[in-house]
Design a protein around this nucleic acid. Structure first.
Length: 571
RNA sequence: CGGGGCGUAGCGCAGCCUGGUUAGCGCGCCUGCCUUGGGAGCAGGAGGCCGUAGGUUCGAAUCCUACCGCCCCGACCA
């Protein structure tokens, strides 16, 4: 492609609306332009990158035996009513009516539509397993779209759905997809982790998230420094402490102490000359509109996703401090489990404490010498606190580290939820009717682009991994006035192109500085400069964007040299 | 939806508090000269329903009201 004919509007200044690097660089580099909140037009360069990712995904899906289809983006409401999600799915589902006042929605995902296909077209166990996928634009009316391609309302997603005869077969399909996902992200050249995940509201038994490691990630992961363990902090399990012999003798008396003005744990610890570890923190949460108390040690943090799972609740959120009184007539900051008349959930660490300090449920007072199990008994004891780097790896006992990550893929074993609600069945080898056992597998294709940039950039711009780069190499012609240089640059461009490489030829009438800056900004992995040194001694300069190293190569060897760099970068 | 902020040239911003003649600046764009290995220089030029609607006023970018849009913090997720 000739740069002079490309719509590639780069800018020197960063648009005010862009907060994160990927968004800034995508705008500055002329990859995307915003149409409206959460919706972007892909300009030529942006589309090229998207297509690179799409093609990798497509190849790996096909290799894994999945078949590509394309489902409508607009879906009939009736299908969603059948699965029960018309009600369950919140306002994120964009609903509307056609001229006949029939309900429709824009597809945020396609379980209903594929399941409908399956029940109509798959009748016998002999046809199974089947895995259908599509690469398509999804729409979710996000509460708050942000960060450009990272969380748009419209985004490109690859979604695959597997149909199997039974759970074992479904597990096999799941494993095949998991392996395929590893290959996809490896081929994209990304540093990522697969983490065990909670299946969340979609339901099902088993789930993994694929996270690209980057500082700007929206999720926090714990990773083991010794083994391959990685998990989302929301879900990272902490084993119950080993049973210790409880010292029965010398149990302290429970007594009330005045602790005015000490609503925070560290203030209480300071006043009473104890450690935060000796205090039990009591937090109120609203679990499906019922107030419950969550207990963790003073130095710990309640993990609300764990609380949600322990309670088997649909929704859990902390009660705002100002609302504690109006809801419970108890003073925020002095809450405690003793004599509390509501459901109490305690972290298992609490029950191992010989005695502790808690709030007295009375303003300005705490209780000392409280013995868990004697002075209060929780309704539920379980894994409630958030994991820390002081905890040990649940698999190997090694040290843990925290990393930010961007979720780019999520795979689920769905089970028979959809096939049952939508009555999707096949005949087994005994003539009986069975529900399909399903799995679903998503990749946020457009998000992969953003994540790749978050992970691979420097102060000059993007550094694309070779497999994702819109062009693999850029040829700069710095002497437009010099015929010899022009011919050399042009021939090199044509030569590389003919060999099948994606090459951008900067033939613009611009000063060298601008050409260098633009080449850096848009992240082309390799740059060949044809200019002064060519005129002088017939050499061109080849630069590797990633590490900034340059090499002076005799012109006749340039194409070969660059070709090898690209080949190496692709594997 | 709750909390905060912003809408002035393609982009980044000033002006608004304290209303007043022709609404500025930088980048970009056009013309010419000059320059050509890291976003040059000079000269000339084009480009504005000051987000929309209403109100106050002799007079509104500026004050008031409503609406719309966008961004940031929380819940959501590929």
């Amino acid at each position: 492609m000739r740069y002079s004919q490309l719509l590639l509007p780069t800018t020197k200044e960063t648009p005010a609306e862009a907060e994160v690097v990927s968004h800034q660089l995508l705008l500055r580099g002329g990859f995307i332009r915003k149409l409206t909140s959460g919706m972007y037009t892909y300009l030529p360069l942006g589309l090229l990158v998207l297509q690179k990712v799409t093609e990798i995904v497509r190849q790996e899906m096909n290799n894994a035996g999945a078949q590509e289809i394309l489902m409508p983006m607009v879906q009939p409401g009736d299908l969603w009513k059948e699965s029960g999600r018309w009600k369950k799915y919140g306002p994120e589902l964009l609903r509307f009516q056609d001229r006949h006042a029939r309900d429709y929605c824009l597809g945020p995902t396609h379980e209903e539509v594929v399941t409908d296909i399956a029940r109509k077209e798959l009748h016998s166990y002999k046809q199974l397993p089947v895995n259908l996928y599509q690469i398509q634009t999804k729409f979710r009316d996000e509460i708050r779209p942000r960060f450009g391609l990272m969380r748009g309302r419209e985004f490109v997603m690859k979604d695959a759905y597997s149909f199997d005869v039974d759970d074992d077969a479904a597990s096999k399909s799941y494993e095949i997809m998991r392996d395929a996902y590893y290959r996809v992200f490896e081929r994209c050249g990304l540093d990522f982790r697969a983490v065990e995940a909670d299946s969340g509201s979609i339901g099902g038994s088993y789930s993994h998230e694929f996270m690209v490691l980057a500082d700007t990630g929206e999720d926090t992961l714990v990773t083991c420094k010794s083994c391959s363990y990685a998990a989302n902090v929301e879900k990272a399990a902490i084993a119950p402490p080993a049973e210790e012999a409880v010292i029965v003798q010398d149990l302290p008396q429970m007594e009330k102490v005045a602790t005015p003005g000490t609503k925070k744990v560290d203030r209480v610890a300071e006043l009473l000359q104890i450690s935060a570890k000796d205090i039990v923190k009591t937090m109120f949460y609203l679990a499906d509109d019922v107030v419950v108390a969550a207990l963790v040690r003073g130095d710990r943090v309640v993990q609300s996703v764990k609380l949600k799972n322990l309670l088997d609740a649909d929704d859990v959120e902390p009660v705002a401090e100002e609302e504690v009184w109006s809801r419970t007539k108890l003073p925020a900051g002095y809450l405690g489990p003793v004599g509390l008349e509501m459901k109490v959930v305690a972290d298992h660490e609490i029950m191992g404490m010989a005695s502790c300090v808690t709030g007295a449920n009375e303003k300005g007072h705490h209780l000392q010498g409280v013995v868990p199990g004697r002075d209060f008994t929780p309704d539920i004891v379980g894994d409630l606190r958030q994991i820390t780097t002081e905890d040990n790896c649940p698999l190997c006992g090694g040290a843990l580290g925290l990393t930010e990550g961007i979720e780019v893929g999520h795979i689920f074993k769905l089970g028979t939820g959809y096939s049952e609600s939508m009555n999707a069945t096949f005949q087994d080898n005994e003539g009986g009717e069975q529900h399909f056992v399903m799995g679903c597998y998503g990749i946020g294709v457009s998000r992969v682009v953003a994540a790749a940039i978050e992970q691979n950039h420097d102060r000059n711009g993007i550094i694309f991994p070779v497999p994702m780069a819109p062009f693999q190499v850029i040829v700069l012609n710095l002497s437009l006035k010099n015929e010899g240089t022009c011919k050399a640059a042009e021939d090199l461009y044509l030569n590389l192109k003919q060999q099948g490489y994606d090459v951008l030829y900067d033939d613009r009438d611009e000063r060298p500085g601008s050409k260098f800056k633009d080449a850096d900004l848009i992240g082309i992995p390799f740059r060949v400069t044809v200019g002064k040194t060519y005129e002088k001694n017939g050499e061109v300069e080849v630069l590797i964007r990633k590490d900034g190293t340059t090499a002076a190569i005799p012109y006749p060897e340039a194409a070969e040299y660059v070709g090898q760099l690209i080949q190496k970068g692709l594997t």
